[in-house]
């Protein structure tokens, strides 16, 4: 299994890999998994929808998600087999309104998954600690380390 490091703004697809992402602060890690094809894709975004049109797709989930789905389908997946797991969206302590945009992630994410016909298979959002994430594209397991805790989606 190859290990691929995922930085802020990256979106990647692989058949046999472990994606390692983080630290993830207010951003979002979205993992797409096809249990039949045993393949996966991941993106590390900071926002949901761009306010202005931008040629860079990496930082906005509304742009990265359709692209990744398209790439997975080109790789042999069918849409009904793809599920999504998402984590991140932590906040700084007492954020001023300008910096609290992660608060609304959950509503937008669900809407975005629905619009792209993707089922959500788990999420871990919020809190004040950054996360490190490991996504195994063979098992679909998403291991999240946050502060002293560790959870599996």
């Amino acid at each position: 299994m190859k290990i691929l490091h995922v930085n802020t703004g990256d979106h990647l697809i692989a058949n046999e890999a472990i994606f390692q992402a983080g630290p993830v602060g207010a951003g979002l890690i979205t993992c797409l998994f096809d249990n039949v094809k045993k393949s996966g894709a991941i993106c590390y975004t900071l926002f949901i929808t761009p306010r202005k049109d931008t040629s860079k797709v990496g930082l906005h989930l509304s742009k990265s998600l359709p692209l990744l789905i398209q790439q997975m389908m080109a790789n042999g997946s069918t849409i009904k087999n793809i599920v999504a797991k998402v984590c991140g969206g932590a906040q700084i302590l007492e954020p001023p309104p300008l910096l609290n945009w992660a608060e609304t992630f959950i509503d937008h994410i669900n809407e975005l998954f629905k619009n792209n016909n993707i089922l959500s298979a788990g999420c871990d959002l919020g809190g004040h600690a950054s996360r490190r994430v490991e996504f195994n594209t063979q098992t679909g397991q998403v291991l999240i380390k946050s502060g002293l805790s560790e959870i599996v989606l």
Partner: peptide, 21 residues
């Protein structure tokens, strides 16, 4: 604050900071 929020070299507790309004 933005660097910590964007995960740019933050540590596990990097978001434990206060931004002056």
């Amino acid at each position: 604050a933005l660097a910590h929020m964007a995960g740019l070299g933050t540590n596990p507790w990097g978001l434990h900071l206060k931004v002056e309004p």
